[in-house]
Write a protein that binds this DNA or RNA. Structure first.
Length: 465
RNA sequence: UCCCCUGUAGCUCAGUCGGUAGAGCAGCUGACUGUUAAUCAGCGGGUCGCUGGUUCGAGCCCAGCCGGGGGAGCCA
């Protein structure tokens, strides 16, 4: 059987680059088949696009293999591309040859009907063959590409920060330990675990962020971005949290908070527009079946000028609001998602960038304002989700940073000598932010659960496949 | 981790007052059809999440455990 020659369905149905009457070979999986005495229809999908192509067989009795061709089977279909006689598709294939490559018996779990996302999660090895998950994975790939294109076109360098980290205080959540110790026989010294005996001669973790290393590269290359996996051992059981997820973290030298805001706004708009323009077919599917408001929501972000509002102003606005909140509002408290969503959905009705948060509720590395009470942090809030980006201008003054780290109770400051060193020699103002890739994808596709935009999600109690 | 909901056929679900189970879809067989969530007829299909308790009798009531969903917190 010849697998080398084939025409992808997207080339026929999306790009419309194949002339009628051409001979084509399709390699793909049968989505559904209808056989009757005088005519049979086989719908094949090859993953190149949302759409199936329909093969028409005029004399089914001459093709006994049709008995074995069932939903889920892989086939090689050869024939002439013709304008369809039926409704619902522009082209179809007059089948000359139909070969069964891999049969699918009746236990194939994906049926020609709607399945719940919960069920499909349990068969994550097969769900990419469904319409929804085919679309999710295609868009995921395109958006990953768009991220690189956006930054590369701006002259940012893509850097790889380590996934294995020895700093236990990068700021966020619980960490996964990594070790080569025999867990039944862990070396101890004076009652304590003796990490010197471990693989790296030190206690190590999976990283929770590439930011600190990103700063090191930004203060040499100028503008950089990271795009890679991160790991959090938080016992979070929500639709928005995964234990392993991908994050984009740009970092710019010679930049202050307003530059950071400009970049974040431009970046989000670029990604959303890219999805609408480059994934039109898949996006149309999401708009029809997953979230009817999707296009309006994304267009709203693309066309809006993001509101910029200080934390202090936002608190004042929330205090004046008639809305009753579960968590009371008061200067100094961290913003709850109900507050964030009220600001972006009710007060401004568009994306909002909040900035200058109280020093006490934000991380050690954020630049302290002249008032001494606030730091140059920013969160980008969007309707329907709330916070989608978090970032800051970094503290570039050595003494101020060191004092703040001590104040925040960071032990073993010596472990961070390298982070402080870039402030000792040739320090520059710099700023950056983090965007959760999977969360951005949720926003773009309208999918409500992070487990359904990640091909093989890792969450508490689930690391299958 | 906390609060609420939930677990019955391959899938989605119903199951009344406690009397050992039913539908639609899928599958199989046949008929029919330029069909496209095809249609029509027939057939097969169950450790009611697990363990224990109450009861003459438990899918149903009680307890514990396990799984799933939604919300909250933490965050991206």
């Amino acid at each position: 059987m010849d697998y080398k020659t084939r025409t992808k369905i997207a080339v026929i149905l999306i790009e419309d680059r194949v002339a009628v009457d051409s001979d084509v070979i399709i390699l793909g999986w049968v989505r559904t088949i209808r056989v009757s005495k005088n005519v049979a229809f086989v719908e094949v999908n090859d993953g190149s696009c949302m759409k199936n192509i329909q093969g028409v067989i005029e004399q089914p009795e001459n093709l006994p293999v049709l008995d074995k061709i069932t939903t889920g089977a892989s086939v090689r279909m050869q024939g002439r591309l013709v304008a369809s006689q039926g409704k619902g598709q522009k082209y179809e294939i007059e089948v000359k040859s139909l070969l069964l490559v891999g049969e699918a018996d009746t236990s194939y779990p994906i049926q020609t009907k709607r399945h719940s996302f919960e069920f499909l999660r349990e068969i994550a090895h097969l769900r990419p063959r469904t319409n929804t998950f085919g679309a999710v994975n295609r868009v995921r790939s395109k958006i990953a590409y768009a991220i690189h294109k956006f930054y590369q076109d701006k002259g940012f360098y893509y850097i790889h920060t380590p996934l294995i980290s020895a700093s236990d205080c990068e700021g966020a959540g619980d960490l996964f330990h990594i070790t080569t110790f025999d867990l039944d026989n862990i070396p101890r010294k004076d009652g304590q675990i003796d990490w010197h005996e471990d693989f790296f001669g030190d206690e190590t973790y999976l990283t929770v962020s590439g930011q600190l290393e990103g700063e090191l590269l930004a203060t040499a290359l100028g503008d950089i971005y990271t795009f890679g996996p991160t790991f959090r051992a938080e016992n979070s059981n929500t639709s928005r949290h995964a234990s392993e997820f991908w994050m984009i973290e740009p970092e710019m030298a010679w930049a202050e908070l307003d530059d950071n805001m400009d970049l974040a706004e431009e970046f989000l708009k670029y990604l959303f527009r890219f999805a609408l323009e480059e994934c039109a077919d898949d996006m149309e599917f999401f708009g029809r079946w997953v979230d009817k408001e999707l296009h309006r929501t994304l267009e709203g972000v693309i066309t809006a000028e993001f509101e910029r509002c200080s934390y202090t102003e936002a608190i004042t606005l929330l205090e004046k609001a008639k809305q009753k909140f579960e968590f009371p509002v008061k200067w100094g408290v961290d913003m709850q998602s109900e507050h964030e969503r009220y600001l972006t959905e009710k007060i401004f009705k568009k994306p909002v960038i909040l900035y200058d948060y109280p020093e006490e509720i934000k991380s050690f590395y954020m630049r302290v304002n002249d008032d001494g009470r606030t730091v140059r942090a920013m969160d980008v809030l969007v309707p329907k989700v709330g916070e989608i980006i978090g970032g800051s201008q970094r503290e570039e003054r050595y003494d101020v940073l060191k004092a703040r780290m001590e104040k925040k109770g960071i032990k073993n400051l010596d472990n961070y000598y390298w982070y402080l060193d870039i402030r000792r020699w040739g320090s520059v103002p710099h700023a950056g932010f983090g965007l959760g890739f999977d969360r951005a994808l949720m926003y773009i596709t309208g999918m409500a659960n992070i487990r359904d935009v990640t091909p093989f999600p890792r969450v508490p109690n689930w690391a299958k496949f």
